[in-house]
Write a protein that binds this DNA or RNA. Structure first.
Lengths: 343, 343
DNA sequence: GACCGATGGTTAAACGATATACCTGTGCCA
DNA sequence: TGGCACAGGTATATCGTTTAACCATCGGTC
């Protein structure tokens, strides 16, 4: 196995200086067409590609972006959320030759910060993408002091300390879900949210309440859960035990919705006959189960793609024009139906 | 925001040469304890960490490993497989300061090879991990000509062209599953596999047949599917339409099993009353649904971890002693029961 | 014919670390 | 007192690019 060719080898083969080669591959002017050709054929003959390390060192650009996912393994595996975001990111990054450096850290509080620090201190990435905006999130501040470009997928905590992407008409999905239920005669509708430190938890619950209020209704129950199956089971148990139990439940994600639906059926409650269930995200999981899950579709791949473009734009790689993310939309399947006692 | 400190700044602050600083941080000898201290405090005072690019350029080691996942987005999201492997990899890599460069490519045949080539040509990684060993896999050859270290998660195609990791007692899970079914009186057992180009497809089916043969039985049906929900639904439809239909079905992964189970129930076939269903992998999904899925657990996180160690060992970062991967084990839940017509 | 501005290159200095080869002062022994 | 080994450093070349500064050639202008 021979040594990897360098720019010097290409220059020698083409009979020019290394500077000329560099100019050609970087599209700088000042090189005539015939020489450009010679350089290009020499490069491809040697299968030469600039060394990422040398480019990074010289130009202080790594052509890589970072992402750190904070998740316990069990939650991770239950939730393909990240994988979809990543595939959206990738679809924009790889055509430009950018790489994605991924770190998965556990729940220990310091691990996440340490990961960002390392990414920044070692100068391994040109920017990072953040997910799961939390209330009181310290990451914006951290990244600003570290001086790295960042983009947030989701709704920022408060003022806008870092660019963010989110779907247009962000409230449409949940509103449509509520309308759908009310149209089917439901009057007692409950909401099972994720952990309260998430920004979207609070936001979605408010949209839910607003949408109900538009029909002069209020939530029958509102329970805070934790995105786990066990949490969903417990939540549904509590709801169904109530004398005035809800006839419909919205969950903050699909995993909880499926777990809740299964728990209800196990308790002998028919879905959708006695209880309508709606999820959130539209993961493929929802189509796998019986009954298939009615849910609010989020364009996760689109969010990833948009985040990548924003980041690349701030790195001067692409011209602005943010792609827009499809608004959440409701997909009606089998887990919702008319309220009990109504035709 | 001030410029990132360099080794020269640290040297100046500590009152030594840059070479001394380098020796200290790399643990080379020849530096007295007091000087070492001065250097270390200077470094931490400036929050200095060696620049990854400079180290990579000088020492031809990037301290990063690559992984390319070939998946269509919909399959990806249905299957948290990768996320688990990645979290296993990460748990070994990050303590050593290694990063994970992830590429997700679509199904286009050339995309995968291009991704590996780029990783190698640009010298972005010190090694790569391969998954989903395929029959006639060309990646081993490719990586060898590219001269990059590699490790395969799974069973190699034929001779061992690249180190690989897999669970000990690889056949135990499926054997236990078959025994479990036979013990419950099942005599007509079917297998729904993944695509035939996967090495594990062939392997698992053979184990399945062997295990049945040990009870003097043969598969009642053997159908090749494609890991998608639609494929599973179609497969189960075919099986149930048969006059001598099976009383139990093993699927090659959990997603198919869940989809198959739902399809059966939709057709009015009770699970496990009339049909027992077993999955493979033990994804959290299996616990979410009703009835909960009986399945064969694979230690995916352990596989990731083991792969990382093998790679790190071949890079001289850790001392051999491969961690071993927990053997597959059967987890009995609710989707299996006695064969119909048997108490 | 001297001068000028393009055009199409070349030379050489960084970028930030590592490692080899080379110093320097001290202690110790003969 | 000279010689020598050794601990504890320092000076410097090097990794493979990019880029600023510089130079040569040539057609055209006055």
């Amino acid at each position: 196995m021979s040594r990897k060719p360098t720019i010097a080898d290409v220059a020698a083969l083409a009979g020019v200086s290394v500077a000329a080669v560099s100019k050609v591959v970087n599209g700088k002017g000042g090189i005539s067409a015939p020489t450009r050709e010679r350089v290009l054929t020499a490069a491809s003959k040697l299968r030469w590609t600039p060394s990422a390390a040398a480019v990074a060192l010289r130009s202080a650009k790594t052509r890589a972006i970072g992402m750190v996912a904070k998740r316990s393994p069990d939650l991770l595996s239950a939730d393909p959320h990240f994988t979809l975001l990543i595939s959206g990111l990738e679809s924009e990054l790889s055509p430009l030759g950018y790489g994605l450096l991924l770190h998965i850290v556990g729940e220990e509080p310091s691990a996440e910060e340490a990961a960002y620090r390392r990414l920044a201190d070692e100068r391994r990435v040109d920017g990072v993408v953040l997910t799961e905006s939390r209330i009181g999130d310290t990451r914006f501040e951290l990244l600003r002091t570290l001086g790295v470009n960042a983009v947030l997928i989701g709704t920022p905590w408060r003022a806008d300390p870092v660019p963010s992407v989110q779907a247009t008409c962000l409230d449409h999905g949940i509103r449509a879900a509520v309308d759908h239920l009310v149209d089917h005669g439901h009057r007692r509708v409950a909401y099972v949210s994720g952990p309260e430190d998430r920004v979207h938890t609070v936001y979605r619950r408010r949209v839910f309440e607003d949408a109900l209020a538009a029909h002069d209704l209020a939530p029958s129950h509102s329970v805070v859960s934790d995105f786990t199956a066990a949490g969903a089971v417990e939540a549904i148990g509590g709801l169904l035990a109530d004398r005035r139990r809800p006839t419909a439940v919205l969950f903050a994600n699909d995993s909880m919705a499926v777990a809740g639906m299964s728990a209800a059926r196990r308790l002998g409650v028919d879905v959708p006959g006695e209880l309508s269930v709606i999820g959130h995200d539209d993961l493929p999981l929802g189509e796998l189960v019986y009954p298939q899950l009615t849910t609010v579709r989020q364009d996760l791949v689109g969010l990833g793609r948009a985040a990548a473009r924003v980041l690349l734009a701030s790195l001067g790689e692409v011209e602005g024009a943010a792609v827009d993310v499809r608004p959440p939309e409701m997909v009606v399947r089998e887990s919702t139906g008319p309220a009990p006692g109504r035709t």
